[in-house]
Simulated scan of single mutants.
Amino acid sequence: MAKLLLNLRNVLEDEAADVRAFLEENAIAFYETRPSRWGISHGGIWVENDADIAEAKRLMAGYQKQRQARVRAEHEQAVRDGTAETFADVVREQPLRVALTLLAIVFLLGLVALPVWLLHH
């Protein structure tokens, strides 16, 4: 019976391509499900054979450790170089999104505080 190896929710395309590549290199049979039309399922990469599941998980663990180390090193280098994205960069690039997010936060805080305010007045 097939087992899910990687849920594709919030997975970057290069990461999914790397997973496909190491499964193919190691001759592990897999198939991929695509995201559903309504966003209920985000798709996944499935290992077909039960006998390959342990090896696929071992390879996946090694890949994730390697990727984590590489991405952290890239981020640390970007911070040292001053090229890492900051909040100010996000505000400059997407001011409407930031403003709407802040308004939503204020609105939700108001909803949380409303019962307390009503009970005291």
Rank of each mutant, 00 (worst) to 15 (best):
A17T: 12
R34Q: 12
L23G: 02
L96H: 02
W38S: 14
L96P: 01
Q66C: 06
A51K: 04
P95T: 06
E25Y: 01
G110A: 15
H75Q: 10
A16Y: 02
E85H: 08
E25T: 08
V47A: 05
S41G: 13
D14T: 13
D50S: 06
A104T: 02
V98D: 02
L119P: 07
Q66M: 15
L8R: 06
I105A: 14
L100K: 07
Q64N: 14
W46S: 04
V116E: 09
K65Q: 15
V116A: 12
H120D: 14
A73C: 10
L23E: 12
P115H: 05
R92F: 00
E74H: 09
R72D: 11
T33D: 06
L111R: 09
D52M: 02
A51V: 07
A54V: 07
H120N: 11
L6A: 07
F87M: 08
A29F: 01
D81Q: 15
G44P: 02
E48L: 13
D50Y: 06
E15P: 00
A54L: 13
I40R: 14
V98H: 10
E13D: 14
I53V: 12
E25P: 01
N26I: 01
M60Q: 12
R70S: 01
E13R: 15
R92Y: 04
V47T: 05
N26M: 00
R34L: 14
H121I: 11
G82Q: 06
F30A: 05
L8P: 05
L100F: 11
R58M: 00
R80A: 13
L111Q: 10
E85A: 14
I40P: 10
P35D: 01
V71A: 10
N10V: 06
M1P: 13
L118P: 01
A2N: 08
V71L: 15
S36E: 03
L5Q: 10
A61M: 08
M60E: 02
R67N: 15
N10E: 09
A56G: 05
R34I: 00
L59K: 09
N10H: 09
A16K: 07
V106T: 04
S41L: 05
V90D: 02
E48P: 05
L108M: 14
A69H: 08
A2I: 04
A113I: 02
V71S: 10
H42C: 07
H75R: 15
F30Q: 00
L109P: 00
D50T: 08
V19A: 12
G39P: 04
E93F: 12
D89Q: 07
R20E: 11
D81W: 04
H121C: 10
